[in-house]
């Protein structure tokens, strides 16, 4: 163990953040202001998520961090190492074993359970920001439930692109009350937000925390004649053959070669371990 207080932040700060989290859980989708601290990493690297994780972790937790679905990207590795060092908690890459998962831009493919907490890193928590620059006005719009403007954004999408072109950070309405930015997850993940696990959202620079308790109703906004669609690339994973997972397109050479792979690396790995093979994949034992 190091000389850091458990999970880096001092106890009073963690209490302050927990109060914000509890308030957020009590009012699903409502953005709770909190006194965001300077963290030993730059804004945009997940300072909001890290503070929420720090206030959530207990010494017995198993911690997992993903960035765009992957456990092995710089951001995920750095944050995992940060908590290994400052909290000494066990870490894992397996979704099913983790008790707290911090994520950037994805929800794991595996259904989460009531024993798990999903922590999102949020760059801009205000879904109305694009159209209404005034924070005073957007707060008033939330408090008075004036959300016509949100549909103006979708209208503009259809007018310009012939369809709702918003592909990520797709706005949702929570329990029929607050309109919420789900952080920049692909809209493919939106339907998964009605889940068994607790979901916490932290925006460090913007100093906001919001939350979804288990089984909260989360509806993606749309028009009657342009209904919401959870879209993904029209392909299967070339490594594990999954048809139902969100895919990344990977360029493999400069001859136009490319492949689709699961963005959720743990999901892909566990499927291959179970013997699933995609079009370009090799059986697990051969690869080893």
């Amino acid at each position: 163990m190091s000389d850091y207080n458990f999970a880096y932040l001092d106890e009073q700060t963690k209490r302050m953040i927990r109060r914000a989290i509890l308030k957020g859980l009590a009012i699903p989708g409502y953005q709770v202001p909190f006194a965001s601290r300077e963290m030993p990493m730059p804004y945009g690297w997940g300072t909001g998520g890290v503070q929420v994780s720090a206030a959530t972790l207990t010494p017995d937790d198993q911690f997992k961090v993903i960035d765009q679905g992957a456990d092995d990207t710089t951001n995920a590795v750095s944050i995992r190492k940060f908590f290994e060092r400052t909290a000494g908690v066990a870490t894992t890459e397996e979704t099913t074993k983790a008790t707290v998962i911090q994520t950037r831009h994805r929800i794991p493919e595996e259904d989460l359970t009531e024993d798990q907490i999903l922590v999102y890193q949020v760059p801009i928590p205000e879904p109305l920001r694009f159209l209404e620059p005034s924070e005073i006005e957007t707060r008033k719009m939330h408090s008075l439930e004036e959300y016509g403007l949100m549909h103006v954004k979708l209208y503009e999408d259809i007018a310009r692109h012939g369809a709702i072109a918003t592909a990520y950070a797709y706005p949702v309405k929570v329990e029929g009350r607050y309109v919420m930015d789900p952080s920049p997850i692909p809209k493919f993940d939106n339907p998964k937000m009605e889940m068994a696990a607790i979901q916490l959202f932290g925006a460090g620079r913007e100093q906001r925390i919001y939350a979804l308790p288990p089984y909260t109703k989360v509806v993606s906004l749309d028009f009657e004649d342009f209904p919401f669609e959870a879209s993904k690339a029209d392909a299967c994973c070339d490594l594990c053959g999954a048809e139902d997972s969100y895919l990344d397109e990977v360029i493999t050479d400069d001859q136009g070669g490319r492949m689709f792979v699961c963005s959720d690396t743990d999901y892909c790995r566990s499927r291959r371990e179970a013997g699933h093979v995609g079009a370009l994949g090799m059986a697990q034992e051969d690869a080893a």
Partner: peptide, 21 residues
């Protein structure tokens, strides 16, 4: 920063219009 159509449509959407066409 919103198109003419969006400007006209805003009040309709504000009172609950949800059919793009």
């Amino acid at each position: 920063n919103v198109s003419a159509g969006g400007n006209v449509g805003e009040r309709l959407m504000a009172v609950g219009a949800r059919h793009y066409g």
